[in-house]
């Protein structure tokens, strides 16, 4: 009997359960991705939440203040204005854009329409432009002596130029028009791919039963597209709540301007977070709190959308 075996017999231990061979390979393949995810996603998420519970002190280490930063949000007039602006963008722009995308997708799914490929490419084209480029372009087009005002004056729709970018109301309208232009084609592609997966037999039997096109759209297409509509609604909600590029580029003076848009009308929550970190006296701790406010709002809105759509999974 060898020494090794004698030692083993003297110290009986439960054998270590080995992972099945396939599991070991699986874990080794995804280990790098897991480490990177943990380092660059999980750690910042946890770290920023911990940061949101601290407040800076002059000359000292930040102090743990429990949820005071969160209570401060309710009294912060600038945050409330940013929240109001963001919600206005969300409530008005998102439904218009999704409805428009759905109508365009329904039309482009109609086999009787000629040149569908051309229309599809043309309408999707805005989605490939960079956010800064299209914001700058729209800022030029919507300026007081820009193309849009010239056109509207020429067809005598208005008697004096509309102050698209210098009036709080029109500034919001301009950003909404620009966002709708940029994102409608993108959402349309999702709807179109969903519609192409709906079997033709359903429409055929509906036609035989005497259903008209509108009834087919509302009773077949929309119910079957519900998961995709939910997906686009949630991604659009998140996108709108993180709105940053358009307001900063539309505001004269960009991020360095005193106000974002006339009378801070384009100040969104994401812009406010930027301002808290880099424009005002840096307060990363409060900025982390505002970031978590967005997380909470997105969670609530997504939950409401799930409930409205009646999705269980």
């Amino acid at each position: 009997m060898t020494d090794k075996l004698m030692i083993k017999m003297a110290n009986p231990r439960r054998p270590r359960r080995k992972l099945p061979r396939n599991d070991r390979y699986g874990w080794s393949f995804i280990s790098l991705a897991v480490v990177i995810l943990a380092l660059f996603m999980l750690y910042p998420i946890v770290s920023s939440f911990i940061m949101s519970l601290y407040a800076p002190r002059q000359g000292f280490q930040p102090k743990f203040v429990y949820f005071s930063n969160y209570l401060r949000l309710f009294k912060d007039q600038v945050f409330l204005q940013a929240l109001e602006n963001t919600l206005i963008f969300f409530i008005i722009q998102v439904p218009i854009m999704l409805l428009l995308a759905l109508c365009l997708a329904a039309l482009l799914n109609n086999k009787a329409i000629k040149l569908r490929g051309l229309f599809r490419v043309g309408i999707f084209l805005p989605a490939v432009t960079s956010l800064v480029t299209y914001s700058t372009l729209f800022k030029m087009m919507f300026s007081l002596d820009g193309l849009i005002n010239k056109f509207l004056l020429k067809i005598h729709l208005i008697s004096s130029p509309i102050p698209w970018l210098s009036d709080p109301f029109w500034a919001k309208v301009t950003v909404m028009i620009a966002m709708t232009w940029r994102w409608t084609g993108y959402n349309m592609i999702f709807y179109l791919s969903g519609m192409q997966n709906i079997p033709d037999e359903l429409y055929e039997s509906a036609t035989i039963d005497g259903a008209n096109s509108f009834q087919q759209l509302s009773k077949i297409t929309v119910p079957l597209l519900k998961p995709i509509i939910l997906f686009t609604a949630i991604t659009s909600t998140i996108g709108t709540l993180q709105l940053f590029d358009e307001p900063t580029n539309f505001a004269s003076g960009g991020v360095t301007a005193a106000t974002i848009g006339p009378g801070n009308s384009l100040l969104t929550i994401a812009v406010y977070i930027y301002n808290l970190c880099f424009k005002y006296m840096p307060n990363y701790w409060y900025a982390a709190t505002v970031s978590y406010a967005i997380v909470i709002i997105v969670a609530i809105l997504s939950f409401v959308q799930f409930k409205l759509a009646g999705e269980r999974q």
Partner: peptide
């Protein structure tokens, strides 16, 4: 005949909507 006219009008409206969307989408590139 009336039904056919209605269908033609609907198709015309569909094309008009698509062309308008196409022009608005492509115009800024010009």
């Amino acid at each position: 005949m009336k039904m056919k006219m209605k269908l033609i009008f609907i198709r015309l409206a569909q094309y008009l909507f698509l062309v308008a969307a196409f022009v608005i989408a492509v115009f800024p590139f010009y």
